[in-house]
């Protein structure tokens, strides 16, 4: 594969503002696509996202709301289960195992939800960062998304 110029690694920057179950699931699917393409991914976990990344929240579906059609949450969860779709955390974990995904928790967002240290968040988080890290990554990325 060395002779193939298209193998150059592309970069994705994902600003994950949302902490809702549906949007986290979408983010997980997108990360999977990036992983299949061997992209380098930086995820910046902002306000509501940081709450979902708290250790006591994570995959605890009771604690997560829907961004849209809140009344359909039960149906949504049942469909994911029937289709054998991974939970959002599992998507993130798998993407990390397949490609270079770094997950950065916004320091301010963490504090808002009572998370001061990296240990306060699910073990997928790599560091706690400031806003310049996000802006720099967004400037350098081939794809930049805000979810």
């Amino acid at each position: 594969m060395e002779d193939n110029a298209i193998m150059e690694r592309k970069k994705m920057c994902l600003a994950l503002f949302s902490g809702s179950l549906d949007k986290l699931t979408a983010a997980g699917v997108i990360l999977s696509g990036a992983a299949a393409d061997d992209m380098d991914v930086d995820v910046y976990v902002l306000l509501q996202g940081a709450r979902a990344f708290k250790k006591e929240i994570g995959d605890n579906l009771e604690q997560l709301s829907m961004a849209e059609n809140a009344n359909l949450k039960k149906e949504f969860i049942e469909s994911l289960s029937r289709l054998k779709v991974k939970t959002w955390i599992e998507f993130f974990r798998e993407a990390k195992s397949l490609t270079n995904v770094k997950i950065h928790i916004c320091g301010l967002a963490g504090k808002i939800w009572g998370g001061e240290k990296l240990e306060d968040f699910v073990d997928l988080a790599d560091d706690i960062c400031g806003i310049n890290a996000y802006i720099t990554s967004a400037q350098e990325a081939d794809i930049h998304l805000f979810i």
Binding site: V29, S32, A35, A36, K84, V85, L98
Partner: peptide, 14 residues
């Protein structure tokens, strides 16, 4: 066959 998108793609990739 047991999985929905992105399952098959990721299985292929792995």
């Amino acid at each position: 066959r047991g999985t929905a998108c992105p399952g098959p793609l990721l299985e292929a990739k792995k």
